[in-house]
Amino acid sequence: MSVRRRLAMSRPTEGAAGRTGSWRVFLPVIDRERCNQCGLCQMYCPEGAIDEDLNIDLNFCKGCGICANECPKKAIEMVREDR
């Protein structure tokens, strides 16, 4: 017998809201020369799309620009993406 579901419950999964990367208008481009690997961009990324080596998963990056805004070295530039 299946468990009676009274309340919607969910577990976090990768891409639970789909491939949010398809929403992107501006692409974050990292200048590795300027970057001092402080990791603030990873910490602030609302999608968890930046890994420990500071690579951005473009499947899920929405292009919100928070990483660029938070970067103390101004090492991330938001570039309009033509699709």
Binding site: V3, R4, R5, R6, L7, A8, M9, S10, R11, P12
Partner: peptide, 28 residues
């Protein structure tokens, strides 16, 4: 309470519930 929170097994409670599911909880 059958849906008591369990810190060892974290879950989202009453999170986004789409048009294919929402009405089932209302019926319950």
């Amino acid at each position: 309470l059958p849906h008591t929170v369990d810190p060892k097994n974290p879950m989202g409670y009453g999170t986004l519930t789409g048009p294919d599911e929402y009405f089932k909880f209302r019926w319950d």
